[in-house]
């Protein structure tokens, strides 16, 4: 993590750049959380290079166990890593200003057109596309962690895939609450790492 912060400081985006990046995300993120997440990842990881894939997914995981709307937690966290508290709030305001404004405008306008069949039909097309975009996003979120475990050993890779599939099953088939699944997956994996990894990997690795 220290390495990541040093890297971020070298790039050192100003508050205006930060606000601009998140404003762009906020104004383009039609299609719900999946689109928003994809845009955030493309902006801060790919376009600006403020975060590595791994650092991004790690912060994503932290945002998942934070109460409330995860994307707002992620936005605060990423902004905070770059420019401290001011950065966190700048990113949050940048994201919310356009999206809340448009949402409020649509709330007023939508009541007028909500009964039109064409609106419902269009929604039916947009939803599968949202699902498709989410699959691409899910792959990029899992990739760094699967690659890391592949480099450790084949059985570690198998264990990681089992964690992913197992979490899906627990939630999808037995309706286990999200927090329980996440903390459970974390605990199991933490114990496995602790007892199977050699001491020498401690420290510089990560």
């Amino acid at each position: 993590m220290g390495e990541q912060q040093e890297r971020s400081k070298q790039i050192d985006p100003g508050l205006f750049a930060l606000f601009g990046a998140w404003f762009l995300i906020g104004i383009q993120s039609f299609g719900g959380g999946a689109t928003t997440l994809l845009l955030i990842q493309r902006s801060v990881v790919e376009r600006h290079g403020w975060f590595s894939d791994e650092a991004y997914t790690r912060d994503f995981a932290i945002s998942q166990i934070t109460p409330g709307i995860n994307i707002l937690a992620l936005t605060l966290l990423l902004g905070w890593r770059l420019r401290g508290l001011a950065g966190g709030f700048t990113a949050l305001v940048g994201l919310l200003l356009p999206s809340v404004t448009i949402t409020l405008g649509l709330t007023a306008g939508y009541a007028q057109v909500r009964t039109l069949a064409v609106v419902q039909t269009a929604l039916h097309g947009a939803i599968p596309a949202t699902v498709g975009l989410s699959l691409v996003l899910a792959a990029s979120m899992a990739r760094p962690f699967l690659r890391e475990s592949y480099q450790m050993s084949h059985s570690m890779l198998l264990f990681s895939v089992a964690l992913l599939v197992g979490s899906s099953l627990l939630m999808g088939l037995w309706n286990v609450p999200v927090v329980v699944v996440l903390l459970g997956a974390g605990l199991v994996s933490g114990l496995v790492f602790w007892f199977t990894l050699p001491e020498s990997r401690e420290g510089p690795a990560a």
Partner: peptide, 23 residues
């Protein structure tokens, strides 16, 4: 964060989050 157990914890939680996201 550098402790094996903590790295493993985040590792498991991140993969679990992807699983939940898919569901």
């Amino acid at each position: 964060g550098q402790h094996h157990a903590m790295r493993g914890f985040i590792h498991g939680m991140a993969l679990g989050a992807v699983g939940i996201f898919l569901v």
